[in-house]
Write a protein that binds this DNA or RNA. Structure first.
Lengths: 234, 234
DNA sequence: CGGCATCCGGGAAGATACTG
DNA sequence: CAGTATCTTCCCGGATGCCG
């Protein structure tokens, strides 16, 4: 009898909420918990299995991932899908509404790179690297490029389609890639955000570039990081 | 002696971080803690004192507000400013970089209002109400309006400048307001987001409208909430 | 009053081990 | 592979009290 908790976890997930009508506050009720936004990020380019999400979010525990997926499903941001017979198990996918958060995450990421504390040299998941191209794109730099750039990273493939100053990123093999990068996410990040020459990475066997080399050299210059914000001397 | 903690709170605020190069993850390191974004929201329209922030964020404890302001100052998002002699004490203000998060908060808020769980009838701070007009503006509805709408809420005044389909919100008395609303934030929200007729609110003494009445009636139709997202039947 | 330190209770996050 | 179970750690929130 006395085992009944005040907050029944099954019935009313009355976890801490901001009792606030502001949309921003409600957004935090939905996706403000730790890891929630990063779980969404990992699903932005297509459905994933539990284990794959977990593998790409080092530091998250199975425990917490289960909870976040439940919350997000409850909120209508994520759906659980059974895989077709050939494969087994299930995957998690964003709903249409969940996908609408993509430009917001992009803007948030672009904003945060102005932080003096931001270090692009740490762990990079394949999905977040690909999304970063879209987020950091500056139309003025890419407006006269029309090309398809492929990426092979791990077992997965992605491609970025550049046209009219827009970068569109998708998962899958590019049927018509003009150039293809093969390497780990931090390696590609080193070229794009760290200014490390392609030749150096190739020499060390970390990166392979196939196809239009000039395009590859151009591509890695398209995403300059914004200037750091200055902390006002107090 | 053994009182030395592993995470020295004074020196290295090595609190839980995502060790992730992705900008979005870094954003969460900066502003992902509970209340952080709402503290920023309260400063978006100008500096505030500690107590005023606290009063407009019901539920936050002095304790936590102190911590958040420290973190945000540490990150370079907030500055502490001494008030000029006539007044006493100090205020907190956003840095230029902090202000750049404004459109992101707007987009986040607009996105979250699609949640079936969003209820615009709860507590509304004056600042968040004003910001919501900017966030929820749809240029197609407001493109042929050029006007200044004033608001008196509590001891504070704000005004919204509508022109060319844009809504710009500022704190302060409008020198040239075409119409002025006087009332509590939830009351104005009831008119704008709840569809409650102005006349009904005026009759109950909750709201006063001075100036161009037709503009007032028009104004409250400019911010329709987006359609709710459907939770896919599973 | 404004701002910060300290103590305490509850609950969320994290790590590890284990199960279908 | 996809989670549960359990235990520990630490953050959040409330109360109190100090200090200018």
């Amino acid at each position: 009898m006395e085992s009944q908790k005040i907050t029944d976890s099954k019935n009313g997930p009355s976890r801490r909420r901001y009792e606030d009508a502001c949309g921003t506050a409600h957004a935090l009720d939905l996706i403000g918990e730790r890891w929630a936004l990063l779980v969404m990020r990992e699903l932005m380019l297509g459905p994933k299995r539990f284990s794959d999400i977990r593998a790409d979010l080092p530091g998250i525990s199975a425990n917490v991932l289960t909870q976040r997926l439940e919350s997000l499903e409850e909120a209508g941001i994520v759906t659980r899908q059974r895989l077709d017979p050939p494969a087994s198990g299930q995957v998690y996918a964003l709903t249409e509404w969940g996908h609408q958060a993509r430009p917001i995450m992009g803007a948030l990421g672009r904003w945060a790179t102005r932080s003096p504390g931001h270090d692009p040299g740490q762990h990079f998941s394949a999905v977040s690297l690909m999304l970063s191209f879209q987020a950091m794109n500056q139309p003025s730099l890419s407006k006269d490029i029309r090309a398809v750039v492929g990426f092979r990273v791990g077992r997965e493939s992605f491609f970025a389609r550049l046209a009219d100053g827009m970068v569109d990123v998708q998962r899958g093999a590019a049927p018509d890639a003009d150039v293809t990068f093969t390497g780990a996410p931090p390696t590609i990040a080193a070229a794009v955000y760290g200014g490390v020459p392609l030749a150096a990475l190739e020499r060390d066997g970390l990166l392979a570039v196939e196809g239009d080399r000039a395009l590859a050299e151009r591509f890695i210059t398209l995403f300059p990081l914004p200037p750091k914000a200055l902390k006002p001397a107090r």
